[in-house]
Nucleic acid binder design. Structure first.
Lengths: 247, 247
DNA sequence: TGTACATTCTTGTATATACAAGCTTGTTGG
DNA sequence: CCAACAAGCTTGTATATACAAGAATGTACA
């Protein structure tokens, strides 16, 4: 505090990131490394301010933002604590799983199990608003986080709304990335349920049959109609879907 | 700015709410009344500071928080604008299971498996913002739809925020119904995951152990603090959680 | 013994100030 | 005409300071 004389009067950093971001990164690192477990009491604002040679308000900002992000829990008079880990984004953010994996600092990859053009059965036809027997793209992809399967994705896409070459290039990125780029989505219908893994899912995700999984049905529509119809399956113990709602 | 002399040097408000909250409320009201439509440019920090007779940092806080909450969009050099409305509800609607059952034209009932006052362990204490060992209400209730168990509910309630008689009357309706009536909720934290039923859940829901279930963690907060912390388990094949998202 | 009070932590609110940085607009000079 | 520059707005980062308020702990007094 008293040693805070001339050198720094304000000035955004040289490197690039703001100072509060450095503190946030530090705290996140401590938590992710296991150094600071859940319920661990993190240093106080004043302590952090001293350690990082910043003002209390800057240290405070780091703690406050992490609290907003659900990483920490604060309590007046008591202190700041590491929150229960909930490594997941909101329902909306599930869209691009590659980004999500990257955000965790892990490596993303995928395996294409099926990529074909086929005829819509009744269920698919209804979901996509097509006639039964109409041509649709069908794909099954497994998404991996650090080579660990975290999502099984089966998708039916409406070919009248998405050019064929996109389908052929799904492996380059995720289908959603392409789809959102080409056809701006106007509405997403999501249904969440729990299932026991069947044989196909179990094999793809490398888990035992019957293991509890989170299954997300998603129908995405653009202004022109229903674009695609997907079924996303996550192993229950490897994924958490978080949602924060304010009103 | 110059008119900011003696009367207020700092001091938290008399009434109750902080000043930035008043500004937030004002902005929200303008938006909700339709006065400020989407893409409308809201007053600048300096303008608001002047209008509300607060410092720029306080006005800034109101704008920043509303931005975090998705109500506004800010852009350096340009200004602050009203965001596209995102009526993402649905997850919230799961709250009152009795209503939901009634809406299906079925008969609602429940079984109380536990109803006690106990001491908070570390996990519960942190979730409720209480000290370890503090008194909390603990309840386990099974909800039935036409005598078929559809939800296992385990709940920890903060007794400082909810009078005791409410706890004793939980069976009359659902806890959530009481809680929302007594303490208007300001925020709900929801996490969804898939689990295999353990023994307690299996027995209560009359399903085999290991059956895939949807587990919803929910932390509800009011302005006074965290009200309760619940764990809701649904048999996977008997429940569907719908969410509609527009953007 | 035990309650009441003061101290000392903590986080929360609020202000005033400074400078950085992005964008628009107007002005000036080639 | 138009490119370059200078103002003048905006938001963004950072500091120093002040006081409020919740929670724990120790202490003194009845």
């Amino acid at each position: 505090m008293s040693s805070q004389l001339s050198t720094t009067t304000a000035t955004t950093d040289l490197g690039s990131q703001p100072r509060y971001a450095a503190i946030k990164a530090y705290i996140r690192a401590q938590i992710e490394s296991g150094e600071w477990p859940a319920h661990f009491r993190v240093p106080s604002e004043n302590q952090l301010a001293q350690d990082f040679n910043v003002s209390r308000m800057t240290a405070r900002r780091a703690l406050s933002e992490l609290t907003d992000e659900g990483v920490l829990i604060r309590s007046q008079g008591l202190g700041t604590f590491v929150a229960e880990p909930v490594p997941a984004g909101s329902l909306l953010e599930v869209r691009n799983i590659a980004d999500e994996v990257a955000a965790r600092g892990h490596s993303y990859s995928n395996r294409i199990l099926k990529l074909e053009q086929t005829e819509a059965n009744t269920e698919v036809a209804v979901a996509l608003g097509l006639a039964e027997g109409a041509a649709v793209y069908h794909s099954i992809i497994v998404h991996l986080d650090n080579d660990l399967p975290i999502q099984f994705e089966e998708r039916y896409t409406n070919p009248t709304l998405v050019p064929e070459y996109l389908h052929q290039n799904f492996h380059a990125a995720t289908p959603n990335e392409y789809l959102t780029r080409v056809a701006p989505l106007t509405e997403v219908d999501t249904t969440v349920e729990a299932i026991g893994a069947d044989e196909a899912v179990g094999t793809a995700l490398e888990i035992k049959q019957g293991t509890a999984c989170l299954q997300i049905w998603r129908r995405t529509k653009s202004s022109a109609g229903t674009v695609s119809f997907a079924r996303l399956v996550h192993p229950g113990n490897r994924y958490r879907l978080g949602a924060q709602l304010r009103f």
